[in-house]
Amino acid sequence: QNEKLANELKSLLDELNVNELATGSLNTYYKRTIKISGQKAMYALKSKDFKKMSEAKYQLQKIYNEIDEA
């Protein structure tokens, strides 16, 4: 289960640069939040902690959705 979550989180991290570029014309909230979420996700992957990875995955998905809707 950890392996599956780690792969999903890696996949979301692969999209980080594209989504970060998409924040160029948006409010600074999005820029700041996506950077923080990305850092948390990288830390969670290194720690291999299921709870941290779950939270990081949720945060990344949430900010990606917010950027898409903005």
Rank of each mutant, 00 (worst) to 15 (best):
L16S: 01
A22H: 07
F50K: 04
Y30V: 03
D14E: 11
K51W: 10
D14Q: 11
M42A: 08
G24C: 14
T28R: 13
M53G: 00
L5R: 01
K52L: 15
N27Y: 05
T28K: 11
M53T: 00
K40N: 10
L60R: 00
G38R: 14
I36D: 06
S47G: 04
S11E: 11
L9V: 02
L13P: 00
K48Q: 09
Q39D: 07
N7S: 11
F50H: 07
N19F: 15
N17L: 14
D49L: 04
V18W: 13
L13G: 00
A22T: 06
N7K: 13
L16D: 00
K62D: 03
N7L: 11
T33Y: 12
L60V: 01
V18A: 12
M42S: 04
D49N: 08
N65S: 10
T23R: 05
K10S: 06
V18M: 12
L21M: 09
Q61W: 06
T23V: 08
V18G: 08
N2Y: 14
S37C: 15
N19M: 15
K51Y: 08
I36R: 09
E15S: 11
E15Q: 15
L16I: 06
S11D: 09
L5F: 02
N27A: 12
L5A: 02
E3N: 07
F50G: 06
K51Q: 12
F50D: 04
T28I: 13
S47R: 04
E15K: 14
Q59Y: 13
F50A: 07
K10H: 04
E3P: 03
T23I: 07
N65G: 07
E8V: 04
N7Q: 13
G24M: 14
I63M: 03
K10I: 09
K48F: 08
S25R: 12
E55L: 09
T33R: 14
S54T: 13
E69A: 13
Y58E: 13
G24D: 12
N27M: 06
K48L: 12
T28A: 14
Y30M: 07
D14W: 08
K31D: 03
Y58N: 09
K51A: 11
L9Q: 00
K10M: 08
N2W: 15
K62N: 04
A56W: 03
S11A: 14
Y64H: 04
K62E: 05
E69Y: 11
K48D: 05
E66N: 04
K51G: 08
K57W: 07
T23H: 06
M53I: 04
Q61S: 05
E8N: 02
I36A: 09
K35S: 06
I67H: 02
K10L: 09
K31Q: 12
N65H: 12
G24N: 13
E66Q: 09
S47L: 11
L12T: 00
Q1I: 13
E3W: 09
E69D: 07
E69Q: 13
I67M: 04
M53P: 01
T33F: 12
D14L: 11
A6Q: 10
N19E: 05
N65T: 10
N7D: 10
I63G: 01
S11G: 08
M42K: 11
M53S: 01
M42R: 13
A44N: 00
A6P: 02
K46D: 08
N17H: 14
M53K: 01
Q1A: 13
T28E: 15
K4Q: 12
I34D: 00
K31N: 05
Q59W: 15
L9D: 00
A70R: 08
Q59A: 11
Y58D: 11
Q61C: 09
A22F: 08
K46F: 09
Q1S: 09
N65A: 13
E66W: 10
N27P: 14
G38K: 14
K46L: 13
S37F: 14
